[in-house]
Structures are given as structure tokens and as C-alpha cells.
Design a protein around this nucleic acid. Structure first.
Lengths: 252, 252
DNA sequence: AGCTGGTTTATAGCATACAGTCGGCGAGAT
DNA sequence: ATCTCGCCGACTGTATGCTATAAACCAGCT
């Protein structure tokens, strides 16, 4: 290994990318400029999806070579994707053993749901504080989409509308950090929830309607409370269905 | 590229690691068994530390080769560490350009602090619900350590005691998911906060003392409220000091 | 002088190669 | 037969090599 002192500038002699701060801002501010996403991104998405819809089951050992071959890439992008998957709670990386799909526990599910309640109710509270008519109109649109899916008994559309509605409330909160955390938690909640439950249906959408009215009238306190109760009921429903599933299995 | 259909078992023919679930649990349950941490972990820690204490400044371009050489490893572990650093908000990875130290903004700092308030107050509330005398005693110990550091005017010890106290409250909450999120947020808060402020000192520790009493008496509601106010004041102090710093800069 | 195009080169992304480690299996001992 | 020890293969962890790309440079033009 070369023996540079830690602090010595490595004297690459070459040119070095300018810092973003150095950018000449007098030019037309160039937008983020869509660059081709690296392979590892696609790999990440692919693996996450496989985990979510149970093609890869909890506890399963993810062998890098297999994933690489399956996806038609080398091990490198796979390993990088696994890093991200770990820090987002999808897999556990055990030194020298490799990656294992995270095994959900009852305890963790409950804590995720509790945390979700906290985060979502705060986002509703913030959303109500400065809601604009346009934003509220968008919420009502999503509500109508949900109602329609409900009467059509279209589960997929129902789930989509539900996610979109919650996501819009979150974005209305204006707090991006909060939004990030919610995205993280919600995705895992859905993973836990998926195998045992359909969405709560009619009841949930009545609660949505109420919530939207509170947001529209900028009643932040009640909006927050409603969202808390709404997500609490989801949590109860989770435990209920979970218990039923356990009983079915016991009989089974 | 080999042409397996996606779903076909790749028929490695070889043996495959047993799933953790398969383990023979009749034998003495083996503890996690400390394995040597991979290099990437050390690399992650090293880079994170450099970012936190400003050896790597916001916006700076992290060149993989340089980091690898500096740390005496190859590029591979560096790349993997950068993946994790990205998903935890320390660096931004731009396709084909590489890693740049995340540039903190005023807005983000405020949102981080607001989110921290939410999470910490919830953890205090939960901690108070089922506090045991032993846990409370530990809190009092940490409080005494803080008071001592205060009278000794020992900044480092003060910061350490403060972190330890908050961490213990979080662990008392019993919600690991919440704890994870707090760890994530707090670490970034400290990063933003560090360059412009020392801890609030005497005032903060008085608030701690009050909080501990509420936790001891299992008054979850007031414990939560106190923590909220406590972190809110930290937030105000942040903005105050930030403004002062900006003014100094304008003059200087 | 300032813009504009091609050229150069540092550097990220990906693939491949190598080495160390862990777990299972079987041969030999008891 | 059961237990122990060492071998063996699979797999991870790490290093290195190759390629594509994007930014800085520079020459020539306006």
C-alpha cells in the first residue's frame, strides 16, 4: 500500500470535479438532469420487490451469485444493493455469512405500527395547518377514487388510492425529513401487513372523508387526532387479523 | 449471460447454508457470536467521523481512490460504505459523478429538529409509562455526571452525558423502531448543530432533572410534554445561535 | 475577447479474479 | 454406534482490471 500520510493531499495532479458550491450559478440553473440510473438501483428495486411479495421468504439466505445470475449482472451491483437493503431494514447482513431476508417479529410489527401512528398523525396535523384549496381538492379526488374502487370491489385500486391519499397528506406537511421516515416505516408496515389482511374498506374511507374535512378547515388539532385514531384502528385490525390467521393455522 | 428463467431454481447442486430458523435450538442457544467486522464497517465509521468533524466539508467530492488510499484499503469496501452513508443521509450519490458530502440547508435543519422533538417526546412518554426504579437510578447517575461536567466546565463530558441520558430514555421506551429513527435523526442533528453551538448548559440540565422526576413518578403525559419543551428550546437555541453566527460572518 | 467544438483524462461503474472463512460431511478413533 | 477431527466445497470479503462517461482544457472561430 502507498504510504501517504493521512492528511497529505494526494497530489493527483489532475483536475478535480468542482464542488457543487463552485458552480457558476449565473447560467440558467440546470435542473437535476436525469441521468441513467446505475444498475445497482435496478437491482435494489428488484430484490426489494421480491422480498415484498414473498418470492424471497423471511430468513432466506440471499446468495450473491444466484441473485447476480438471475438478474443478469455481476456480484458487485448486488452487493451494493444489499448494503442499502440492510440499512433500510429489509435484510440482515451477517459477517462472513451473507445476507438474510429480515425475519419480522410480532414485537417489531407492533412497534412499527405504533411509530407509524405517531408519524402519520403529526403529518396530518402539519398538513392541516396551511392547507390550500388546491391541495384539498386533490385529496377529495383521491377520496373519490377510493370510493369508486370500494364500490367496484377493486382491491388493487383501493390499495393504490389509499397509499396515494396518505402520501399526499404527508407531502402537504411540508416536512421532508418526516416524509422520509414515514416512507421508510410505511413500506415495512405494508410488508408485514400484506400477507394477512386486505385493507379495512368502507370504514377506513369514512375516516378519510372526515380527516379531509378537518384538513380543509385547517383544524390541525382534530386532523392529527383523527389520523391517530385512523392508524390506531389499522393497528387493531392488524392484530385482529393476525390472531385469526394464527387460529386458522392451528386448526389447519 | 446464462439464460435461466427468472424463477427456475439455479441448481447450484451445492449445499446451501441453513436458514437461521433451521438451527438446532435444543443445544445451548449460542449468543450472537462476535465475528470480526468487515472492513467496510471500519470504512463507514471512518468516513462518517470525518464528515461529522468537518474534515470532509459539505459539498466536497469524495473520490473513491483517495479514500481507499487514505484508509489503506481497496475501492470496494469504500463503495459499499458509501452506499450506506447515502441511505443514512450523509452523502449524496450522483450517478456517474460519485459521492458528495450532503449539503445541509436551513430548511432541512429545522425539519430535523422538529422531527426530533416529535420522536423524543414520544420516547419520554413511553419511558415514563413503565419506568423501573433501577432505570430511574441510572438516569439520576447520568444527571449527576452532567452536573459535575457542568461545574467542571468540561464540554466533552457534558456532551457525552447529555447523549447518554437521552439515549437511556430512548432505550427505556422499549420501542426499537422508534429508537432507530431517533438515532438516525439525532446524529444528523448533532452534525448540523455542532459548528455553531455548545450545549445549552445549566438550563438544559435543570430541565433534565424535572424530566427525570416525571419519569420516576410514571407521569407519562408530563414527561412527554417536558421533553417536547426541552427539545423545542434546543431548537430555538439553534436558530438563535445560527443567526448570531450569520451576523458575525456578515461583520467579519 | 468570448463563445464553440473537439480532445484529454480523471473517475465512476461494472466485471473478474483471488483469498480467507464457515459449515457440512466423512474417515478414523473410541 | 457415536464422537471427533480434519478435509472440502461454497460463499463471502477484498483486490484489481477494464470500459464508459462526464468535466476540464484548448484550439480555432466569430
Amino acid at each position: 500500500m502507498t504510504e501517504w500520510a493521512g492528511s497529505v493531499a494526494p497530489a493527483t495532479g489532475g483536475r478535480r470535479r468542482r464542488l457543487p458550491a463552485d458552480r457558476d450559478e449565473t447560467r440558467a440553473a440546470r435542473q437535476p438532469l436525469e441521468r441513467p440510473a446505475p444498475l445497482r438501483q435496478a437491482v435494489y428495486d428488484a430484490i426489494a420487490e421480491m422480498i415484498i411479495n414473498r418470492e424471497l421468504r423471511p430468513g432466506e439466505h440471499l446468495v450473491e451469485n444466484e441473485l447476480a445470475a438471475q438478474l443478469g449482472v455481476s456480484r458487485q451491483p448486488v452487493r451494493e444493493a444489499l448494503q442499502r437493503l440492510q440499512s433500510e431494514g429489509w435484510v440482515d447482513l451477517r459477517p462472513a455469512l451473507g445476507a438474510f431476508v429480515h425475519v419480522p417479529t410480532e414485537e417489531e410489527a407492533d412497534q412499527l405500527l405504533a411509530t407509524r401512528t405517531l408519524l402519520e398523525s403529526e403529518s396530518a396535523r402539519l398538513a392541516a395547518r396551511n392547507s390550500t384549496p388546491e391541495q384539498v381538492e386533490r385529496l377529495r379526488e383521491l377520496q373519490r377514487a377510493g370510493e369508486k374502487a370500494l364500490s367496484d370491489d377493486d382491491q388493487a385500486a383501493l390499495v393504490a388510492a389509499n397509499a396515494a391519499l396518505h402520501a399526499h397528506v404527508v407531502s402537504m406537511s411540508g416536512n421532508k425529513v418526516l416524509a422520509e421516515l414515514i416512507a421508510l416505516v410505511d413500506r415495512r408496515v405494508r410488508w408485514y401487513y400484506a400477507p394477512i389482511a386486505r385493507s379495512r374498506g368502507r370504514e377506513a374511507w369514512n375516516e378519510h372523508a372526515e380527516l379531509i374535512e378537518m384538513i380543509a378547515s385547517r383544524n390541525s388539532r382534530r386532523a392529527g387526532d383523527l389520523m391517530r385514531r385512523h392508524t390506531e384502528r389499522t393497528r387493531e385490525s392488524y392484530h385482529q387479523r393476525r390472531k385469526e390467521a394464527a387460529e386458522r393455522e392451528a386448526l389447519g
